[in-house]
Design a binder for these strands. Structure first.
Lengths: 182, 182
DNA sequence: TATTGTTATACTCTATAACTATA
DNA sequence: TATAGTTATAGAGTATAACAATA
């Protein structure tokens, strides 16, 4: 509604697609990637302006990698966050919800719903702690342990897709560079 | 609501191994080198069970990097997506909304709202195209061009934070590895 | 008929606040 | 008083569908 007021009186002549030109940016944009992004000559839009921005590349990569993970584990209907929750519980039976939430950097409020869904699928169980009856000790069910083993095989397949996409050595270099965030 | 049914009958005495403790995170296991996706199939990994998963590291890193970007550009109230939209328009004046949306991988429906906000702040203007009156040619306003120059200085500061966090060479290696996604 | 910009809806994720039952 | 789990709400972000104007 408020939108239309904008275009109002302005649609006059002489605008049309002016030069697709890019003005050269000042300063640092080098970053050593001598190949691959001088797209200005494609029928493509110069994204050049975003080269050299780590956050942009990381965001686009993260979208790709999550989509591949979801696709690869679609048959078992497990999404990345569900997988990470089950993996942490599987490796550390008895953790409280707070501990899992902190470890994975997700809100404890959100973990409640994630666990509801995993519990309904009989993959995870909450057991009231004897020592602190406010908290729940989290465990995989027998079925959950079996299922997680299969999820891990599919996740390994997904990792192979990543290696195919960016190269085996690059994947390992990436893991090293980002090891502080794991 | 459905939740309570779960804990209902089972919250009795036999708690089994419920050391609900928050075990302190042990040092990095042995994930520093070598074929990381074999780690996925190992079971006894402790809290480093997610090492070797590229997607997890990338997600955590992306969260960190976006938060730093938002913090660094908080004074000008510009978020990563707004920055990318202005950068692409600034480098390619006259683009249609469809073209920008496709290039940045965002929904055209969402771009509408992003542009509404930028237009209200007088940073971007939509001009009805003369050649195809369905579409809008997008331009930065004079104010938008001035503002973008400052945003870019702040974004460069953010990139320096990234370099401090992961190392200058690692940042450049990362940009190289992910150049296909830019 | 297909496309551009727009509106609307739904579902996910994040960020809070408040409530309960314990401690 | 503080903490663990829960509920609720609001905001971004994503994914669709539908509609009007235009091609």
């Amino acid at each position: 509604m408020a939108r239309n007021s904008q275009a109002g009186g302005t649609a006059r002549s002489r605008i049309a697609r002016s030069r697709a030109g890019t003005r050269p940016r000042p300063g640092r944009t080098r970053s050593g990637n001598g190949s691959a992004h001088n797209d200005l000559l494609n029928d493509e839009i110069g994204l050049d302006a975003l080269a050299g921005h780590a956050g942009y590349a990381v965001r686009r990569f993260q979208i790709w990698i999550f989509q591949d993970f979801i696709r690869t584990l679609a048959a078992v209907d497990i999404r990345p966050t569900q997988y990470s929750v089950m993996t942490v519980i599987g490796a550390n039976p008895g953790l409280s919800q707070m501990a899992v939430a902190k470890r994975l950097g997700i809100e404890r409020a959100r973990l409640v719903h994630l666990l509801d869904s995993l519990e309904h699928r009989d993959l995870v169980s909450r057991i009231k702690s004897a020592t602190d009856r406010r908290s729940h000790a989290l465990h995989l069910t027998a079925q959950g342990r079996t299922a997680l083993a299969q999820f891990k095989r599919l996740a390994a397949e997904h990792e192979r897709h990543v290696a195919e996409k960016i190269g085996k050595e690059n994947r390992e270099r990436l893991l090293q560079i980002l090891s502080a965030f794991t």
